[in-house]
Structures are given as C-alpha cells and as structure tokens.
C-alpha cells in the first residue's frame, strides 16, 4: 500500500497531527490562478482536492457553487482540469492530488478515457459525489486497476450494515461527512458526537484513513483534530470570493488561511 495518499497520512501521524486536506475548484477564478493557489497552499496542505466544476452541483452549498460558476464562466473545461493537475504534479511530485466532482462530467468524457487520463497525469484519488455504493463498485475497481484511489463517502445516515460493506470495498481513504448538510454548512453537531461516530467507523478497520469534512473552518478545526485527516473547502472558496471582491491577491490570502488552519492542528 505505497500510495502517496497513504504516505501523506503516515507522515502526518508521525508528527502527531491530522492530515490537512484542502479543496479548491479548478479554474477558480482563472486557470492560471487556480494552479498558483494549488501550488502555494500545498506547502501547508498534506493532500489537495481539486474540484472539476459542474453547473448543477446538488450537494454543494453557496460558497462552492459560487466558485464553480465562476470557474465555468471563465471557460474552464475538463481538459484544463487535467492540465492543472499535470502541471501541479510536475512540480510537487510527492503531493497527492484528488479530483472531486459529479458523475455526469465523467460520463460525458467517457469513464475509461477519464480514468486513463487521471492515471496519465498522476492523479492519486477520485471522489464522485453522486455515485454512491453499491452502484459505484465497477467504477471503483476500474480506478483501482489504474492505481487511482476511489474514495468512498460515509455519512451520519449510513447504516451499520452498509458501513461495513463500504469499508470492506474501500481503498486507502474514506471521507466521513460530519453532519446532514451540503458543503459549507455551519457545524450543527457537537464535535464530541462527530468524533464518537468517527470512532465507530475507525474501529471497523484501523488501517483505513478516515477524514472528516463539511463545516470545518478555522473556528472548528481544532475540536476535531483526533481524526486522521480534516477537509476544508468552503472556507477556502469563500476566501477566494472575498479576495476578488476586495481586489486582493487570492493566492496570498488563501495561503494564509491554509497556514493558519495548519497551525491550529499542529
């Protein structure tokens, strides 16, 4: 299991902290800027998630929607997303990158072609929001064949039996959705409760890296630091929106946020 994703988690563990995962949208606000942001924040982030934007994102809240619409408006295409990933991996060879998005984009590109391309540009993992278990089984095994981690999502509504099956079929990493919410919602469940449920997932198979996402901000991140990893997305997208509004450089502002997030979990 020598995936870069696994290594990133082990590395964080050896420093006695959770891994920090960031989420930004490819092409937000331009192709060039989003690559610069990615490169710059990866000095502090352990794993970078890169969203390929869709104009009907049914599980995303306002912040990520805004980022996605902005990127699409600026002309981002799937092949641009791949070229951003490729450029990123050229300079940051050991930094894992995970693509995240909705299935229709993959379906239109053609599943096999999409996954070949992922392998080709050295994408480490893939999250597909609207392709749940068990319908994703075939797709997940196609990913595995190409050395791409397929990352399953688990939520507070996932039943025990289902959880067992999902974990059994999962690869190196699982993504636990902290609460019933779209991305960017306010954390409405106590960290204690989230961690309790998280512990139940973790206990099923300690070798799987389980990250927590949704509702994580500078305010809440510290309270969940017991997890293997924590994902911050909307808070970063919001910072890009604010920077554009204030005519400031999003690269600097976003990097500062990620730096602060990292310091809170050290």
């Amino acid at each position: 299991m020598a995936s870069l994703i696994n290594e990133a988690f082990q590395n964080a563990k050896s420093e006695n902290r959770p891994a920090l995962l960031t989420y930004t949208v490819a092409g937000d606000n331009t192709k060039k800027k989003s690559l610069e942001i990615l490169k710059s924040i990866s000095d502090y982030a352990d794993i970078c998630e890169l969203g390929f934007p869709h104009n009907t994102p049914i599980a995303d809240g306002g912040q990520i929607q805004t980022s996605a619409y902005r990127a699409i408006k600026n002309g981002i295409k799937i092949n641009d997303v791949f070229s951003i990933a490729r450029d990123f991996k050229k300079s940051k060879k050991t930094k894992p990158i995970i693509l995240m998005g909705y299935y229709n984009m993959i379906f239109q590109y053609n599943e096999n072609k999409f996954l070949d391309k992922c392998k080709n540009v050295k994408v480490d993992g893939l999250i597909v929001v609207d392709l749940p278990y068990p319908e994703n089984k075939k797709f997940a095994s196609k990913c595995k064949k190409r050395g791409v981690n397929f990352i399953q999502l688990v939520s507070p509504t996932t039943s025990e039996i289902r959880l067992k099956k999902i974990i059994k079929d999962s690869h190196d990493m699982l993504y636990y959705i902290s609460m019933l919410s779209t991305t960017g919602g306010k954390l409405k469940v106590s960290p204690k409760k989230i961690l309790k449920r998280y512990g139940k997932i973790k206990n099923q198979n300690k070798s799987k890296n389980v990250v927590i996402g949704f509702g994580i901000t500078e305010k809440t991140i510290k309270s969940l630091k017991k997890a293997d990893g924590l994902v911050v997305g909307s808070a970063i997208c919001k910072e890009i929106s604010n920077s554009i509004k204030k005519r400031q450089n999003p690269v600097t502002n976003v990097t500062n946020i990620v730096k602060r997030l990292k310091n809170k979990i050290k």
Partner: peptide
C-alpha cells in the same frame, strides 16, 4: 439498480440521501 432499459433512471445521489 433502478434503471429502465438498462440505462435510464437509477439513483445518482449523495451518500447522505441513500438512507
């Protein structure tokens, strides 16, 4: 899996909505 004619329909939903 909820498909008519093997390809129309289905349930492409986020994990939270599965239950």
């Amino acid at each position: 899996h909820g498909f008519w004619g093997g390809k129309f329909g289905g349930s492409f939903i986020p994990e939270t909505l599965k239950k």
